[in-house]
Simulated assay, not measured.
Amino acid sequence: MKVIESSKFTAERAWGALDICVMNGTSCRLHWTDTPYKWHVNDGEEVFAVMDGVVRMHVRDADGERTVTLNAGDIFHAQAGDEHYAEPVGAARILVIEKAGSV
């Protein structure tokens, strides 16, 4: 058993992660960042839960590009193939659940 105080987690670099566990091929990682990620497409589904801070999630689809603001407690779900990137507003802590080894 482990208890993780997510509000106290920091990393040495943006998008540094604390590996929490891998369950049946699905990884659960806590990330700390103060820098946007890049546009990307996951090869599987991804659940993105903001634990602390504010994150602007940029998404592209057939209808164009849009931005959704996620606050602490908000959850974003991306299907495989959804193009997106996360832009924190200041520092943020994000719990990411996805297929182990996904980029």
Rank of each mutant, 00 (worst) to 15 (best):
K8W: 02
T10Q: 12
T10P: 02
T10Y: 08
A11R: 01
A11N: 05
A11S: 13
E12N: 12
W15G: 10
G16R: 00
L18W: 06
D19M: 10
D19V: 05
I20L: 12
I20K: 10
I20T: 01
C21K: 12
C21S: 12
C21L: 13
M23G: 06
G25E: 01
G25C: 04
G25D: 03
G25H: 05
T26H: 09
S27C: 08
S27D: 04
C28L: 14
R29G: 05
R29Q: 09
L30F: 01
L30E: 00
L30P: 02
H31L: 15
H31Q: 14
T33H: 10
T33D: 09
D34Q: 15
T35P: 04
T35V: 15
T35G: 08
K38Q: 11
W39V: 07
W39S: 12
H40K: 02
H40P: 01
V41E: 08
V41M: 10
V41T: 14
V41G: 03
G44C: 07
G44F: 06
G44L: 08
G44I: 05
V47L: 15
F48E: 04
A49P: 01
A49Y: 10
V50A: 10
V50Q: 06
V50W: 07
D52S: 12
D52Q: 14
V55K: 04
R56D: 15
M57K: 11
M57V: 15
H58N: 15
H58G: 12
R60E: 13
R60A: 09
D61R: 10
D61F: 11
D61C: 11
A62D: 12
A62I: 08
A62M: 07
D63R: 15
D63F: 11
D63H: 13
G64P: 02
G64Y: 00
E65Q: 14
T67C: 12
T67R: 07
T67Y: 05
V68T: 13
L70P: 00
L70E: 00
L70D: 00
N71L: 03
N71R: 08
G73E: 02
G73H: 07
D74A: 08
D74P: 03
D74G: 06
H77E: 09
H77L: 13
H77S: 13
A78E: 01
A78C: 00
A78G: 01
A78F: 02
Q79A: 15
G81Q: 03
G81T: 06
G81L: 07
G81M: 08
D82Q: 06
D82P: 00
